[in-house]
Simulated scan of single mutants.
Amino acid sequence: MIESAWIWGALGLILLAVEMATGTFYVLWFGIAGLFVAFALWLFPSLSIGIQLVMYAALSLGSLAIWKLNCKKIETHSRVGQAQGEEIGRIGTMIETSSASQNGKIRFTQGLMGSKEWVAVSNETIESGKNAKVVAVEGNTLRVQAN
């Protein structure tokens, strides 16, 4: 019969492989807990199955809870393809007049977030040919002001 330590070790390695395939960080803690139980069984081979299960549950759920409390979530999934503030302050040339009632277009000499031309909105009138500075990114448009 296969020893319990080998079963826990195999379970831990399988869960770590699942974690590497998914990249969620949730399965990681269960895999590490399985490896710790296998190590504990190597040190103390007479541990009962009840203690093994309680140890596995405590280690996996405890480490998951600690990770969730200390994890700093950065929501990038909702801003795919959008700048997150690093393009604010860039200066471009208006190629279509922009005002509070009309969207314009701005062009940059170097690509900005993958494009050289963007739809621009502003609270003031900025004539074509004038320079404007990016003050915010609003969805697929840039909020600009005269420079």
Score class of each variant (00 low, 15 high):
Val27Phe: 04
Val27Pro: 00
Trp29Cys: 02
Trp29Thr: 03
Trp29Asn: 01
Phe30Thr: 00
Gly31Ala: 04
Gly31Asp: 00
Gly31Ser: 03
Ile32Arg: 00
Ala33Gly: 07
Gly34Thr: 03
Leu35Ala: 04
Phe36Tyr: 10
Val37Ala: 05
Val37Cys: 04
Val37His: 03
Ala38Tyr: 03
Phe39Gln: 01
Phe39Asp: 00
Leu41Ser: 04
Leu41Glu: 02
Trp42Met: 13
Trp42Gln: 11
Leu43Ile: 13
Pro45Gly: 10
Pro45Tyr: 10
Ser46Arg: 10
Ser46Asn: 13
Leu47Glu: 06
Leu47Lys: 07
Leu47Ala: 09
Leu47Gly: 06
Ser48Phe: 12
Ile49Val: 15
Ile51Asn: 09
Leu53Asp: 02
Leu53Thr: 12
Leu53Asn: 07
Val54Asp: 05
Met55Ile: 08
Tyr56Leu: 10
Tyr56Glu: 01
Ala57Thr: 13
Ala57Val: 13
Ala58Asp: 02
Ala58Gln: 03
Leu59Ile: 11
Leu59Met: 11
Ser60Asn: 05
Ser60Asp: 05
Gly62Met: 06
Gly62Trp: 09
Ser63Asp: 00
Leu64Asn: 02
Leu64His: 07
Leu64Tyr: 09
Ala65Asp: 02
Trp67Leu: 03
Trp67Phe: 12
Lys68Pro: 00
Lys68Glu: 11
Lys68Tyr: 13
Leu69Arg: 15
Cys71Leu: 14
Lys73Gln: 13
Lys73Met: 10
His77Asp: 14
Arg79Leu: 15
Arg79Trp: 10
Arg79Ala: 12
Val80Leu: 14
Gly81Glu: 01
Gln82His: 13
Gln82Asp: 07
Gln82Gly: 03
Ala83Leu: 10
Ala83Arg: 06
Ala83Thr: 13
Gln84Leu: 14
Ile88Arg: 00
Ile88Ala: 01
Gly89Asp: 07
Arg90Ile: 02
Ile91Tyr: 08
Ile91Phe: 08
Gly92Asn: 01
Gly92Met: 02
Thr93Asn: 06
Met94Lys: 07
Met94Gln: 07
Ile95Lys: 07
Ile95Ala: 05
Ile95Tyr: 09
Ile95Val: 15
Glu96His: 12
Thr97His: 05
Ser98Met: 13
Ala100Asp: 11
Ser101Asn: 13
Gln102Cys: 05
Gly104Thr: 08
Gly104Ser: 08
Lys105Trp: 12
Ile106Phe: 09
Arg107Gln: 14
Phe108Met: 03
Thr109Pro: 10
Thr109Phe: 14
Leu112Cys: 06
Met113Gly: 04
Met113Phe: 09
Lys116Phe: 14
Trp118Glu: 00
Trp118Asn: 00
Trp118Val: 03
Trp118Cys: 01
Val119Ala: 09
Val119Met: 11
Val119Arg: 09
Val119Ile: 15
Ala120Cys: 07
Val121Lys: 12
Ser122Pro: 09
Ser122Val: 08
Ser122Phe: 10
Asn123Glu: 15
Asn123Pro: 11
Asn123Gly: 15
Glu124Met: 12
Thr125Tyr: 06
Thr125Ile: 12
Ser128Ile: 10
Ser128Cys: 11
Ser128Met: 12
Ala132Trp: 04
Lys133His: 04
Val134Phe: 03
Val134Gly: 01
Val134His: 00
Val134Tyr: 01
Val135Ala: 01
Ala136Arg: 08
Val137Tyr: 05
Val137Asn: 03
Val137Thr: 11
Val137Asp: 03
Glu138Ser: 13
Asn140His: 13
Asn140Leu: 15
Asn140Val: 15
Asn140Ala: 15
Leu142Lys: 01
Leu142Asn: 00
